[in-house]
Write a protein that binds this DNA or RNA. Structure first.
Length: 953
RNA sequence: GCUCGAGUGGUGGAAUGGUAGACACGCCGGACUUAAAAUCCUGUGCUCUUUGGGGCGUGCGGGUUCAAGUCCCGCCUCGAGUACCA
């Protein structure tokens, strides 16, 4: 033993990861090793990471987790002979940079640039195989020129329900010119009819107002989530529990004129498209829920007496339970419903006004937390039940939402708990339409009861009754069957500075698109990044922000004459604009004529593997799917789903350390706590294995310099710990840089993978990193590298045992990678190296294949060893290797069944690659088999290739 | 409340219905060393034991199966999403 260890120390070159990694980083950059081009002779594979927002805090160890996994996969695919597109960029528009700008007056572009440089620096150290020549930044004008272009295309499109796709708005206008809008089945805000003649007589602004109801992006007054603290509106996915996702500020409802995206037009396709995607069921489920399809009917309830004899006023409600229509006791409108003011009787005017005022004051959050508080107000108006002709009261209540369905419901207290609560609270009589069901204590919401008191629906249960009710409603013209979606159109305006400017100017109050040839409209400079005094968005501060329609350029505001020079839009686009199509730009990032060259798009197509967090389920992932479908409809791209397979990596949490201060101000060790101490976060760099570096702690903060300590009995100071999100303020941030410095990038890469399943959230912990570090040193030692960096290995033929170890590993690693089990992949390498060490294997043939196999995981050491084996530098990173071909193991292998277990099944060693018939023969001739069969002939013999033999009697 | 996911040693975690706990950390013991570090070796689910071995073990209770961590039914706990959606 002693001799062996001495021999290694004297003769072997140490594994010096620092110089190795530095050299290869340089080599890869200089040789552009990872640059890819279209290559028709190779199959493409597109591996993408969700690009980061470059925040000021830099990367912590959690960020690279997904990047490492995708990098391993990209490298693996390259070894298998695929032409791999693996780019990276930055989602560089966003709130933090702007808030920093407000505080410091620095241009967000400057801080963004600094942050990007820092990110790039950190990323480079981890050995990613990104093709950096394809880098995109959403905040660069060359990029957002095409974001603006997509916006214009959306503006110039409508959604045709007949063909179930988006089409140019010009085609719609042509139809209007010819025959009006009768018979057109298109997605539209409102139902109304006009003839070709009407259309011709409308003024341009009337025409435009109509078109806005069809366009896929449109300007409309809508109820939006307004966040006063951020001074901007937010999309639904940016509001969490009634507060803003960023910063946690309260959000209220406000009616504002805003750009919106007609994503609702795509609701059905966004829903059905999920079926073909290889995503986790949970993300699909979240999207399904968010889209929220429900089938039912919309029913019109005429007013009891038309206002001033007018009999056209009808309240439209949406219900999923038309079978309960005879149980309707009253109607409820949302307080914001447009008809409320109109229908309210004199007697109830003040009450209704007051109720509307109170509910408008409530924030979204109050409205949510107030669920148990039942409120409502009678309007005095009455509607007629369409079937029975009964008079029913119309109420307003804020449990009815203006933005869902029609903003009005038919209340069926016997069959809906909320209606029941409401009726009970206000002492409204409840009609029971269920046979033998007691509804005195609660509504009956199940659908299995027999319906009674309902004329033609009597005796039916829900399913049949719904169909029959819809039939009757349609037949009598009271309404029609309808599908409703919870998904709402997405607000697209933000009252911010640091975002894409709209390519829009206003002529007579009507929005005009700037022609593509004159894009991009570049974000102007402003003095202040805050809203203007009169409440305009920050772009209201810009002095050069008007559009000259003759020169086609941005000019000074002073020149605005509304004849040839017009004001430009003051809002900017939301953060998700740029990220909704960036995967397309990577394909051809420098193109100035189009968003990407058609032939390149045709070659690379959509993303094969997308890795990122699941927090984007209802935001980015939905919007990107929407835009992709739109671009597909309009013939710009040949696919309609952007991300075929997706893996969601879990969050890496921080492990915070605490010291405890007692009432006397002493700092107490964990073992000496009495329970009355206050925990204080302490920087984790001062703590090793829960042991505090007391001297360092005293230096850390001046107020601790003279602190008194209560130590453990053995004189050490032990910290407490807790798992929390990694954050600067908790002093628990571990940067990858320190670990790369200390252990090397290859160790970091493998350790992050070794931590556990990729999808799982887990606390960061460096306890086990030595294990990986030892493993790489062991691997290095196997190669017996001499002073000149050359591997001293035997050219002898490998032993059967050597081959078995290698082939088993090749098989397992492929299995692991194909099911994205990177952690077991690392383990299998460890097993392999342990076995080869034990076998004292120094065979060139075995070890060179091992290097290839391990290169996706630990590319730096693999390159070094590859060269040490006498190969050309850089080739292991790009070349195709036959060890991954299915034929390889079949040809090279030898196998035999190893274990007999149970009565009918044989587990066979993994590296068996004999044909099924051969395995069957061997197994059938085994003494155990013969004994078990007792002379009977088996009915069936199932051989799972190379794995398991089942014998069925 | 509803929907989805997960519960395995001291720890992170392996395991296609087929020898549960691979691999790693940690720990115990040993070798080498003046010493430390590094390295290497042995052991390590719990438990009983006459040291041969035996019993019990994958949140709980049932079931299917020759065989269940894995499949089915009912609970418990934790996590995620969502929340008056008519």
């Amino acid at each position: 033993m002693k001799v062996v260890s001495l021999r290694y120390n004297f003769m072997q070159m140490e594994y010096n990861f620092q110089s190795i990694e530095q050299n290869w980083r340089k080599f890869w950059a200089e040789n552009q090793t990872y640059k890819v081009e279209e290559d028709a002779t190779k199959e493409k594979y597109y591996v993408l990471d969700m690009f980061p927002y470059p925040s000021g805090a830099g990367l912590h160890v959690g960020h690279p987790l997904g990047y490492i996994a995708s990098d391993i996969f990209a490298r693996y695919k390259r070894l298998k002979g695929f032409n791999v597109l693996h780019p990276m960029g930055y989602d560089s528009f966003g709130l933090p940079a702007e808030q920093y700008a407000i505080q410091t007056g620095q241009h967000p572009e400057k801080t963004t640039k600094e942050n990007i440089n820092r990110y790039r620096d950190q990323l480079d150290k981890i050995g990613f195989s990104f093709d950096w020549s394809r880098e995109v930044k959403t905040s660069s004008p060359e990029y957002y020129k095409w974001t603006q272009w997509i916006f214009i295309e959306l503006f110039n499109s409508y959604y045709c329900n007949t063909d179930k796709k988006a089409k140019p708005i010009a085609e719609l206008v042509a139809i209007f010119d010819k025959k009006g809008n009768g018979g057109i089945d298109a997605v539209c805000d409102q139902e109304f009819d006009f003839t070709a003649e009407d259309w011709g007589n409308f003024s341009p602004s009337q025409q435009e107002a109509i078109l806005q109801k069809y366009r896929l992006t449109y300007l409309a007054d809508s109820w939006v989530n307004w966040c006063p603290a951020l001074g901007t509106v937010l999309a639904n996915d940016e509001v969490v529990n009634g507060v803003s996702e960023r910063g946690g500020h309260p959000v209220e409802q406000k009616l504002m004129r805003q750009w919106s995206m007609r994503i609702k037009a795509y609701a059905e396709r966004l829903l059905t498209g999920l079926d073909g995607l290889d995503w986790t069921e949970s993300i699909k489920e979240i999207q399904r829920y968010w889209i929220g399809k429900s089938q039912g009917a919309s029913v019109f309830f005429p007013l009891w007496k038309g206002i001033d004899g007018e009999d056209t006023v009808k309240i439209e409600v949406f219900t999923t339970r038309p079978d309960t229509i005879f149980g309707v006791n009253f109607l409820v409108l949302a307080p914001e419903h447009p008809l409320v003011a109109e229908i309210t009787t004199e007697e109830f005017k003040t009450g209704v006004e007051e109720y509307k005022r109170l509910s408008s004051l409530k924030s979204e959050r109050d409205r949510q937390s107030d669920v148990k508080n039942i409120t409502g107000q009678k309007t005095g108006a009455k509607a007629l039940h369409p079937f029975t002709g009964e008079e029913i009261d119309i109420w307003i209540a804020d449990y009815v939402l203006a933005s869902y369905g029609t903003g009005a419901v038919m209340a069926v207290p016997c069959g809906d708990q909320r209606d029941w609560d409401f009726a009970t609270h206000f002492g409204i009589e409840i009609k029971n339409i269920f046979r033998d069901i007691d509804i005195s204590t609660a509504a009956y919401v199940e659908k299995d009861a027999e319906i009674a008191n309902s004329e033609f629906l009597n005796g039916l249960t829900a399913k049949a009754a719904i169909a029959k009710a819809v039939e009757a409603i349609e037949e009598k013209g009271f309404g029609k069957g309808k599908t409703n979606y919870r998904l709402r159109d997405a607000v697209f305006s933000r009252q911010r500075y640091w975002g894409e400017p709209f390519p829009v100017y206003y002529k007579n109050g009507l929005p005009q698109m700037i022609e593509t040839a004159h894009l991009p409209v570049i974000l102007p400079d402003v003095e202040k990044y805050l809203p203007t005094e009169d409440g305009q968005p920050p772009l209201g501060n810009a002095t050069v922000w008007a559009w000259d329609t003759t020169a086609n350029k941005v000019v000074s505001n002073e020149l605005i004459d509304n004849k040839t020079i017009f004001p430009l839009e003051l809002n900017t686009m939301p953060g998700w604009a740029g990220s909704s199509w960036y995967f397309l730009r990577y394909v051809d990032p420098l193109n100035t004529d189009t968003f990407a060259d058609q032939s390149k798009i045709d070659y690379w197509k959509n993303v094969d593997l997308y890795i990122g967090g699941s927090e984007h389920a209802t935001g980015h992932l939905l919007y990107a799917r929407f835009w992709t479908k739109f671009l597909y409809d309009r013939g710009f791209i040949p696919f309609e789903e952007p991300f075929q397979k997706m893996i969601n990596q879990g969050m890496i949490l921080g492990r915070s350390s605490f010291v405890y201060r007692n009432a006397e101000g002493k700092i107490v060790s964990r073992g000496k706590l009495s329970g009355n101490e206050t925990p204080i976060h302490v920087d984790i760099s001062l703590v090793d294995n829960d042991k505090l570096d007391v001297a360092g702690f005293k230096d850390w903060r001046t107020d601790y310099a003279t602190a008194e300590f209560v130590f453990e009995d053995d004189g050490t100071f032990i910290c407490g710990s807790e798992v929390e999100k990694m954050s600067k303020s908790k002093y628990n941030v571990q940067t990858p840089d320190e670990l790369v410095e200390k252990f090397g990038a290859d160790t970091l890469r493998m350790y992050e993978m070794f931590l556990g399943p990729l999808e799982q959230s887990k606390p960061w912990d460096t306890k086990g990193i030595n294990g990986v570090s030892n493993f790489l040193r062991k691997l290095w030692r196997l190669f017996n590298i001499d002073e000149n960096g050359v591997a001293q290995l035997s050219k002898e033929a490998p032993s059967k045992e050597n081959l078995k170890t290698l082939h088993k590993t090749i098989q397992k690693i492929q299995d692991d990678l194909d099911r994205f089990s990177f952690n077991t992949g690392v383990s299998n390498f460890m097993i392999c190296v342990n076995e080869l060490t034990e076998q004292k294997c120094d065979k060139h043939g075995i070890l060179s294949e091992l290097v290839v196999l391990i290169s996706p995981f630990a590319p730096h050491i693999a390159e070094q060893l590859w060269v040490a084996l006498g190969n050309e530098a850089g080739t292991v990173s790009r070349q195709q290797f036959p060890i991954f071909n299915p034929e390889y193991l079949a040809e090279a292998s030898f196998g035999y069944p190893v274990s007999f277990n149970g009565k009918m099944r044989f587990k066979v060693d993994l590296d068996v690659a004999l044909s099924a018939a051969e395995v069957e023969k061997i197994v059938m001739e085994m003494p155990e088999t013969t004994k078990w069969l007792e002379g009977k002939a088996p009915k069936k013999v199932i051989v799972v290739p190379g794995r398991i033999v089942n014998i069925v009697l």
